[in-house]
């Protein structure tokens, strides 16, 4: 089990744990970030500290600090 921000570029993983506080976590859940959901790390923008992930057919941007709240297992 690793943190989402440690995932290798382009690799697929399955969400294990969704952390974070109140409103942010709720928004994550509602956008479909549920434990068990597969996702893929599409892009890593190191200059801006932003990650782009694909999940349920949707592309979403996350800050690296936000991605730390998510635990995944490599597939």
């Amino acid at each position: 089990m690793i943190r989402l921000d440690e995932l290798l570029l382009g690799s697929c993983a399955r969400l294990v744990h969704v952390g974070g506080e109140g409103a942010f976590r709720r928004r994550l859940l509602e956008l479909g970030f549920l434990p068990g959901t597969p996702l893929r790390l599409v892009r890593r923008m190191d200059v801006g500290g932003v990650l782009e992930v694909e999940l349920r057919g949707v592309r979403l941007s996350l800050r690296r600090s936000e991605a730390r709240e998510l635990a995944v297992e490599d597939l």
Partner: peptide, 12 residues
Amino acid sequence: GPRIPLLMELPP
């Protein structure tokens, strides 16, 4: 206000 997440859809 609470911390603002970037969490945002990048539509096609």
